[in-house]
Design a protein around this nucleic acid. Sequence first.
DNA 1: AGAAAATCTTAAGCTGGTTTAAGAAAGAGA
DNA 2: TCTCTTTCTTAAACCAGCTTAAGATTTTCT
Lengths: 190, 190
Amino acid sequence: MNCPNLISHLRKHVPLSDGDVALLYTYLRPASIKKKDFLLKEGQVCKANYFVEKGCLRMFYINNKGMEQITHFALENWWLADYMSLSLQQPSQFFIQAIEDATIVAIEAHQQDELFRKLPQLERYFRIMMQRAYAAAQMRVKYHHDYSKEENYKLFISLFPAFVQRIPQYMLASYLGLTPEYLSELRRKG
Amino acid sequence: MNCPNLISHLRKHVPLSDGDVALLYTYLRPASIKKKDFLLKEGQVCKANYFVEKGCLRMFYINNKGMEQITHFALENWWLADYMSLSLQQPSQFFIQAIEDATIVAIEAHQQDELFRKLPQLERYFRIMMQRAYAAAQMRVKYHHDYSKEENYKLFISLFPAFVQRIPQYMLASYLGLTPEYLSELRRKG
DNA sequence: AGAAAATCTTAAGCTGGTTTAAGAAAGAGA
DNA sequence: TCTCTTTCTTAAACCAGCTTAAGATTTTCT
């Protein structure tokens, strides 16, 4: 078992002895998954919080027109889950799928409280991660309101040029909430 | 000093002895503020996390057309802050203002780590609060994408009918991302 | 009560972004 | 290599929601 990125990420935020790491390992479920494999499907309960060691995930739902609407991407060192479904253990409206072959590490919902009791530092670590995620979500609301679709597109490619190379255009269009056709027009304009 | 709502809210999620509460009180800064008073202005660093004991707050920014764009409301038993500014102690792009006379309780950023070291339960409490807030933010992204403005308006008034009575229409319009004129038209239509 | 400020409504014209439809190009499997 | 699938592009018609402007109503303050 090997999760070098996760362990070093944890140690950036909280102290973890080697013994703590050994204990932690008994609660982690690492997995290799193939491109297009699903970690969660609509109607299932989200059973774990997923850390991306390597690769790339997307979270999406099927909108009222039957199209896949992407709401989140997760790259290396990001956590991803449907936190409403995970917290309340109720059926999810989302899918989580690999868009590249990926290595992920799962912490199961039903083991999380026990793990946090044994390693209380994790409570702090996830408090920081959730606060960070929520802070990003607050800014996202602002950008979404404040910028036109064209401006949002330009902002995104300026912030994440490498990532734009990594995913198909139509997934970026979906995430940004515009049609592939209009994205194509924006690219042509410059 | 008196924060009954906050204490009972904490005790819903973590154990707190009377001694813990006494210690906690030394870190809480309660305040009564008047309608239209500000807790945060653009350019300032967000210095505290605010709990609403009574009343109602809004968070907004000035958009590129010079209009106030509301991004969050906070009623009784909600926490509100610009978490990006609070976490990184960098200048905020937001305002936080009372829209009714309000009683709030502040936990100052510069005391938070010390408080959490003395009462580690709070780390868990805020992990739960932040996860809940982020979960709500994930759902908000979905609703925002999936529903038309008219559907979002109808959803909001069906979910929060009492709140709709409490705030001016133009603030609801701002929050929902539509013009007061269009909201007026939607109301007329039924 | 009266004046000023804040909030809400109506209606016409306009536009950013979608829809639809068709084809071109690139990638992947056999 | 060839075929099938996936991804991307072009262009015209269309519409949800905005802008502008003016006035009506409600609330707040003196």
